[in-house]
Write a protein that binds this DNA or RNA. Sequence first.
DNA 1: ATGCCTCAGCTCCTGAGA
Length: 254
Amino acid sequence: MKIATWNVNSLTVRLPQVLDWLVANPVDVLALQELKMTDDKFPHAAFQAAGFESVCFGQKTYNGVALISKVQAQNVVRNIPGFDDDLARVISADVAGIRVVGAYFPNGQEPGSDKFEYKLAWLKGLRTWLRSELLVHPDIVLMGDYNITFDDADVWDPEGMRGQIHCTDEERYELNALVTLGLTDAHRLFAQPAKSYSWWDYRDMAFRRNRGLRIDHILVSDALKSRVSACWIDKTPRKNERPSDHAPVVLELV
DNA sequence: ATGCCTCAGCTCCTGAGA
């Protein structure tokens, strides 16, 4: 079984690339972030023609998340129950016996800003909700664009970015608090290429120079950990013409 | 250096992303 996540930075622009990627990578579930479209524009028919069901949670202009799956997702929940939020950032569902949570974590813009405070509040809301979710659903995969690096190994320029957004102690505290709930970063369960990143700035030829960050993660619950057989970042689509700035991350379960 | 790309939208500039 394969599960993947990809921030596509506009599904309108990236739909052909997503469909191509699914042909080459017929995963069981693909979580998408940053759809940047309302639900009425979501291309259910295009995915269906490719052999996939889809559930979405969109909004105008920004954010928006979806789950694409071979079998119909069940018991769909949108956003974080118990945390009031105007933005479409989380979609959860049962797929093939696993509780799949796809999330687009807030960016935070700049430490100390209102958006940073919102990011921290959102992270706390997510953690509070997940604590009870794990009791109800032991087999959970939490994946998406976390907009947080775990440590220096996830940052192309750790010194230059120290204390900057995606790299602050406050954000990393919250990320580690999620781990403490009983979740594991699947990427780090395996030997990975040096300087493995999932996002590269569009500017300054950052991808070619591998100036990136690892901010897209797949966390698996303790109950699922022994089933994880591989986890990798697929840089192939980042080489496309008009790519997303993010690469997909793929998880393989036995 | 408050930009360098890219995308959406009350679109010929601005806000946001990360």
